[in-house]
Design a protein around this nucleic acid. Structure first.
Length: 284
DNA sequence: AACCAGGCTGCCG
DNA sequence: CGGCAGCATGGT
């Protein structure tokens, strides 16, 4: 099918923004996005300059409106939100911090906070600790190849190599801690088995957790071993769309120092989006 | 070849 | 309580 996207949307930036680790751009210029056991292929039509942007998309209209449109958070107006962020930045008296933040908000144009699967976010960000982005992508890929199942290509698109789903809680519950250490997960292996055990047993209901407020959700997620403040905030932001949450990692910590104090609370309900602009600008 | 990576746990004071 | 060593492994 064909889809027209009018708001700010830059798949290249989204893929390199550190919120998803399986999606990528293929050699033929199409983008491949993956979420749990779903795959989407998309290609820009009619050059790159004109708005609105039109994309040729591999799924049905039902899958687009029923899933992927929500995944890309397309019902939200990011152009307007980014403008609100810029106005908040203009109110600052500290010119050095203001120009730093203004630059980040400009660099981040086209980023969106993806509405991803909570289980996939839980495991992915447990794996992410003390790793750089290529290393995270590698361990996630290993996990999918070992415990997920193959996803077949749709329609006219063919794939360069086999693509695997993200393992479901049941699929991952087959993995013992030594199995996961053998995959190279290191000290994170027992954290993953604890997460799978809690979710499979029903001790942690990720679906129902979505009805909790931000703070209760955050506290609930931290009951899993290996999930601390930063990882819990990543799951809140990228898995539950809690846009006020600000995961503080080494990069954001540097940005806070650079601004002479934490600049994010000023952005209120959009602090998490501003955080993503800053993270992207700093890691680019 | 050292040093770092989207940190967390357990222990020490 | 706050502070901090130790941690497994792949990138740069």
């Amino acid at each position: 099918m064909r889809a027209e996207i009018r708001d700010e949307f830059d798949p290249d930036k989204i893929i390199r923004s550190g919120q998803c680790f399986r999606s990528r751009k293929l050699d033929d210029g199409t983008w491949m996005f993956l979420s749990t056991d779903r795959m989407l292929r998309m290609k820009r039509e009619g050059g790159t300059d004109p708005m609105p942007a039109v994309y040729e998309i591999s799924c049905t209209p039902q899958e687009w409106s029923g899933f992927w449109s929500g995944y890309f958070d397309l019902s939200r107006n990011y152009a307007q939100i980014r403008q609100i962020c810029l106005e908040i930045i203009d109110d600052r008296t500290d010119t050095a911090a203001a120009s730093f933040l203004r630059n980040a908000a400009a660099e981040g144009c086209g980023l969106r906070i993806l509405r991803q699967d909570p289980w996939e976010m839980l495991i992915t960000f447990i794996l992410s600790q003390r790793k750089n982005m290529p290393a995270i992508a590698l361990s996630v890929e290993k996990l999918c190849r070992a415990y997920g199942h193959e996803i077949k290509a749709e329609g006219i698109y063919d794939l360069p190599s086999a693509v695997f789903s993200f393992p479901s809680p049941d699929e991952l519950s087959c993995a013992s801690e030594p199995d996961l250490r053998a995959l190279g997960l290191g000290y994170r292996a027992p954290y993953v088995t604890d997460a799978a055990q809690k979710v499979c047993s029903g001790a942690l209901d990720l679906q129902q957790a979505g009805s909790l407020d931000d703070e209760a959700l955050y506290q609930t997620l931290m009951t899993v071993k290996g999930v601390g403040k930063k990882v819990a905030d990543c799951i809140c932001l990228f898995g539950y769309g809690r846009l006020a949450r600000v995961p503080v990692d080494v990069w954001i910590s540097r940005a806070v120092t650079c601004c002479g104090g934490n600049p994010f609370p000023a952005f209120g309900p959009y602090a998490g989006i501003m955080q993503q602009y800053v993270f992207y600008a700093m890691t680019k």
